[in-house]
Simulated scan of single mutants.
Amino acid sequence: MAVKLGSNDGDDLTETADINITPFIDVILVLLIIFMVAAPLSTVDVAVELPVSSAPQKPRPEKPIFVSVKSDLAITLGEDTVARPALGAALDTATKGNKDERIFLRADKGVPYGELMGVMNLLRAAGYLKVGLVGLEDVSGGDRP
């Protein structure tokens, strides 16, 4: 509560309704600085070693459909080389039009990631959404990153 003492007109002290907000702003700025310093400290990078999955392997289909990307970026369906624009039609023939058939995608180690994603986009555009990536199993049992 503020009091005005400037006039000597009478003994009445008149109250003014001015609120001093300077201390309020100071407190808000201090809190802002505290939160700005504390926020980055609250995110801690913790190294975690994830466990190996012990889930049983799903049974392999009798005649799986393999799409392979060779090191020269050629695409093969089974044993036959297929042009990129004709991949959808060749898959329709191989699966007899069943879009729910799982397609196994293999790629050479030297194939750039962008090329592999391009082939996956071709499969998705053709309507084949069940794609399994094929790799070698780690039979040594070692923990490799």
Rank of each mutant, 00 (worst) to 15 (best):
L5S: 10
G6M: 06
S7G: 05
S7A: 10
N8F: 07
D12S: 09
D12L: 10
E15P: 00
T16N: 06
D18P: 03
I19V: 14
N20E: 13
F24Y: 14
I25F: 08
D26K: 14
D26I: 15
V27F: 13
V27S: 11
I28L: 15
V30G: 09
L32W: 06
L32E: 03
L32T: 14
I33W: 02
I34H: 06
F35C: 10
L41F: 15
L41M: 14
T43H: 13
T43V: 15
V44W: 07
D45L: 12
V48I: 15
E49N: 05
E49G: 00
L50T: 10
P51A: 01
S54H: 06
A55D: 09
P56L: 05
P56Y: 01
P61A: 03
E62N: 11
E62A: 15
K63D: 07
K63V: 11
P64Q: 04
P64F: 04
I65V: 14
F66H: 10
V67S: 04
K70G: 10
K70D: 11
K70W: 05
D72S: 11
D72E: 11
L73H: 08
L73W: 05
I75H: 05
T76K: 10
D80V: 13
A83D: 09
A83W: 00
P85S: 06
A86S: 04
A86D: 15
L87D: 02
A89K: 15
A89C: 00
A90E: 12
A90S: 12
